[in-house]
Amino acid sequence: MSKKVNIKICVGTSCFVQGGADLLLYNDFIDPEIIEKCEVEGTSCFNACKSSGKEGAPFVMINDIIYGDMTPVKLKKIVTEAFYARNK
């Protein structure tokens, strides 16, 4: 039984308007075999944008780790790695 990867895409207004909206098209850019075994949801603001970290919006939480400056390419990479880490 494979373990699911948990993806939470921030859909707070700030993330959404700075490119976060595009991440909702995850079916287009992540491997269908992988996305099938992921739990994806749009969630409210993690408040990551309000901390003074180096990374900016949009933010995504993958298996409880928050990543900033997210792009479709970066999301694909991290999700794919997380998937194989859990399903060796």
Partner: peptide, 12 residues
């Protein structure tokens, strides 16, 4: 959208 961001209004 910029007004929402400036006022920190999260529609959802």
């Amino acid at each position: 959208a910029s007004m929402f961001v400036a006022k920190e209004i999260d529609v959802k």
